[in-house]
């Protein structure tokens, strides 16, 4: 269960990171207040994920953190690609 939380935390961080990029903002405009929140989340979620990983298994925590992070990043990148493709095809 903790692994799932770590995965979700990483996914949220990657999502926030991509939403903050200018190329994504063109397709999905972002309010200034939200921008600040996303910037905060982008930093906080991976730290939280690291704490969870170290709590789960102190010795192998870093391996879980990197592994789940990479997978979450891959999942979000594919999801974002599909969303952008769908959005760009809308009239």
């Amino acid at each position: 269960m903790i692994s799932l939380y770590v995965f979700v935390a990483w996914a949220c961080a990657f999502w926030a990171h991509e939403r903050l990029q200018p190329r994504t903002c063109k397709l999905f405009p972002l309010a200034q207040s939200r921008r600040k929140a996303y910037q905060l989340l982008r930093f906080c979620w991976p730290v939280l994920a690291l704490f969870l990983c170290l709590y789960r298994d102190f010795e192998k925590g870093l391996l879980y953190w990197f592994g789940l992070g990479a997978l979450a990043g891959l999942a979000v990148s594919v999801l974002m690609a599909i969303l952008k493709h769908t959005q760009s095809r809308l009239p």
């Binding site: 990171h17 991509e18 992070g69 990043g73 891959l74 979000v76 594919v78 690609a81």
Partner: peptide, 26 residues
Amino acid sequence: PDLILFRPFGARPRAWLDAHLVTGVL
């Protein structure tokens, strides 16, 4: 900035390059 940038629906070299970069970086 291109940490998770992936454009599989783009032109062929672009899609392959993105796949190379996204796996390489992550």
